[in-house]
């Protein structure tokens, strides 16, 4: 599909922008309703394999629920002498980042009247295992850098798409989680 195939139908990326803008207005008027708590329960299976479930969360002042429980298995690959029953946890972070940014791309594009035809992101996280293996104290455990490359086919100029991707980062929860420090408390109860 190309831009020259002028279409008279309105832009539809499957995002209900009116609902989002309505929520923004409603939550501006009622700040406590905007406070959400997301949670997950994790169960060890065996070795490095564990299973995490998300179902309930709290928001709009009351308990909420997904349509059904979702489970994600995480494990380490066979080269680490594990069984590879699922993605590694750091890969889950890449999944979260990509999912969040792409949701933002669709929403921002919808809001700006840009019809998307295809969006493909490649996420590459670079890490040096000398960190988690305790070989070099100067190497961090986490990714030293993450690169996300978007290939987008849409009825918009390259600059407009760059602006959509930039705005998506500005409003992304996972981008913020990954780029900024967050207080994390881990306890045994």
């Amino acid at each position: 599909m190309s831009i020259t195939e002028a279409t008279t139908t309105s832009v539809d990326n499957g995002v209900n922008v009116e609902a989002l803008l309505g929520a923004r207005e409603a939550l501006t008027a009622a700040p406590p309703a905007a406070r959400f708590t997301f949670s997950a329960t994790n169960e060890w299976v065996n070795g490095t394999h564990s299973r995490t479930t998300v179902e309930k969360f709290f928001g709009l002042g009351e308990e909420q629920s997904h349509r059904r429980p979702y489970t994600v298995d995480t494990d380490h690959p066979e080269i680490f002498a594990a069984e590879d029953n699922g993605p590694t946890p750091p890969e889950i972070v890449l999944i979260g980042l990509a999912g969040c940014l792409t949701a933002g791309v669709a929403s921002v594009a919808q809001n700006r009247g840009i019809q998307l035809h295809s969006v493909r992101a490649t996420v590459v996280g670079s890490t040096d295992l000398a960190g988690i293996l305790g070989i070099d104290p100067d190497v961090r455990n986490g990714y030293s850098s993450i690169r996300v490359s978007y290939q987008i086919d849409a009825d918009a100029s390259r600059e407009e798409l760059q602006a959509v991707v930039a705005q998506s980062q500005k409003r992304s929860a996972v981008f913020d989680i990954v780029t900024n420090p967050t207080t994390v408390v881990v306890e045994v109860v």
Binding site: I146, A166, Q169, F175
Partner: peptide
Amino acid sequence: FSGSFANMCTSADLKQNR
């Protein structure tokens, strides 16, 4: 410091050029 520096710069460049 946040790892968002590149995006801050890209956004500002785009805004300027617009």
